[in-house]
Structure formats: structure tokens, C-alpha cells
Design a protein around this nucleic acid. Sequence first.
DNA 1: CTTGACCTTCCAATTGTGGGAATGTTTATA
DNA 2: TATAAACATTCCCACAATTGGAAGGTCAAG
Lengths: 129, 129
Amino acid sequence: MNIGEAAKISGVNAKLIRHYESIGIIPKASRSDAGYRIYSEAEVNILAFVKKSRRLGFSMKEIKKLVSLWRNKTRASAEVKNLALKHVDEMEQKIQELQGMVKTLKHLAKCCHGDQRPDCPILDDLASH
Amino acid sequence: MNIGEAAKISGVNAKLIRHYESIGIIPKASRSDAGYRIYSEAEVNILAFVKKSRRLGFSMKEIKKLVSLWRNKTRASAEVKNLALKHVDEMEQKIQELQGMVKTLKHLAKCCHGDQRPDCPILDDLASH
DNA sequence: CTTGACCTTCCAATTGTGGGAATGTTTATA
DNA sequence: TATAAACATTCCCACAATTGGAAGGTCAAG
């Protein structure tokens, strides 16, 4: 099938498919006589795999690793699990950070009357040096 | 003072100061005869303001707005408050997203024995199409 | 007068995605 | 059959924010 159909089925934009190919996330597609990329079921599956991994927040670098683990039938599951748990750690750290920022900003906003007067504790805090 | 000292006092990298100037976040610095940028206390304060806002997760676009509000002594505090609360909303949404991803990945990881065997529920799920 | 620490500008890489231009191919229709 | 539309190709540019380097000019101290 052509790239357009592969895009529709996998849910990955055609533009992005070419990009993924160019950076080596997915194997180079074979070509028709006219130079059009040709995809099989198996390749569409890889694309869907990539898409799902992205939705779980894995970086391209991590996904490159995951794809290669996925295609290597002799991999140890421990390797995949480690990658996943490392990613979980990073996300939990990010959550902590965001929660801290939210808490601070909410506090500042609560102190700000939010009316027509120019007086603003939020800016005062940001300016406190 | 020179850019190096302004960087040290404000905590903003000299490289970044030039960048902020180039994209209009901060006003253009005046120059010495030799072309060196010259900073006053007031300008260092803006830099520190920017830094603090970054730490609270505001985007450059938002910070541009915040700086202009900060410098405009007649602004309404409501405008600042809205900006801050909108940012809080975005961060809370991001937290939700991350928590969902963490939950899914943790569940998958718990199902994965994580040993030398190739069998891996994490990859199986990512591949499920 | 030279050395080292500063400063300048310009250019590039990062991450992941999207948009457009210029050009070529396939397919459907008038 | 001619032509138009819907596809495909490559290449370059943009975003957001930061960092890095290269090539060069300036300042202060030894």
C-alpha cells in the first residue's frame, strides 16, 4: 500500500512517517517503479507501535530502542521493563515539579484581588529579587 | 555593568540574555564605545523576573506579556491573575496526562516478569493494534 | 607586549512535528 | 485522448528554548 493508506491505518501522518524513516526509527520502505514508498501490514504495525509509545510519552530515542527490542525475538523482558520504569520515574519527577509550580501559582493568585487596580502580588513576587 | 556581571547577578546565562534581547523579551541594552552591552540595576531586575517566571513554567510568550504588564504601572491585576490561572489550568491538565501515562506503564510493568525470558507484556501491549 | 578573560556576531544542534514549494505519477472524468 | 484532481516525491523552513562552537575584537594585568 502507499504511504497515504499506511498513514490512515496506522494513524501516523504521512509527513511523520517519512521523518521517522529518515531518522532510522523505522526501516526504509521499499519503493515502486515510480519511487513511491510501499508498505506491508508488518510495517504498518511498527508505525502503530511507535504511535502508541509516543502516546505513553516515550522519547524518540527510547522508542528506537523499544522498536529494536520488539523486533528482536530473543530480547530479555528485563530490558524492556527497565526502560519502562525509568520512564515512569522521569514522569513522576515531572509531575512533582509541575505540582510545585501549581501550588506556588495558586497561592499567589489567591492573594491577588484580580480587579481593575494595578496592585498585583503575583508580579510583586516575580519581581522580588 | 557588563553582560557577564549581569548574568551572574540575575542568574541568567549571558548567552541567554543575548537571546532574550534578540527575541524582544527584554529591551535592547545600550552599548559602550566598543559595542559591549551595558546593564543597569533595573535591567538586571527584569532578567531575574524572567528567570523566576521560567521557573514557574511560563512560556516565553507568556513571559513577554508578563514583563510588559509588570512594566506598565497602570495594568489591571485581573489581567495578570487570568494569565496565571490559565497557566495553572494547563499545568494541571499536563499533570493529569502524565498521571494517566504513569498508571498505564506501571500496570504493564507489574505484569512483566522482567527476567531473561523474551516474553514481555509491555511490548505486547504496545504492539496490540 | 603578550596573555587570558572578557566581549561581539553568526551558525548549528537539539526534539518532534508541521507547513509549503517545486516537481512527478496515477487515476478519473469530460 | 487530454486534462484535472489527488496522490506521491524531495528539500527547506518554522516552531520553543537553550546550548555549543567558531572567528574575531577589547580590556586589564603581568
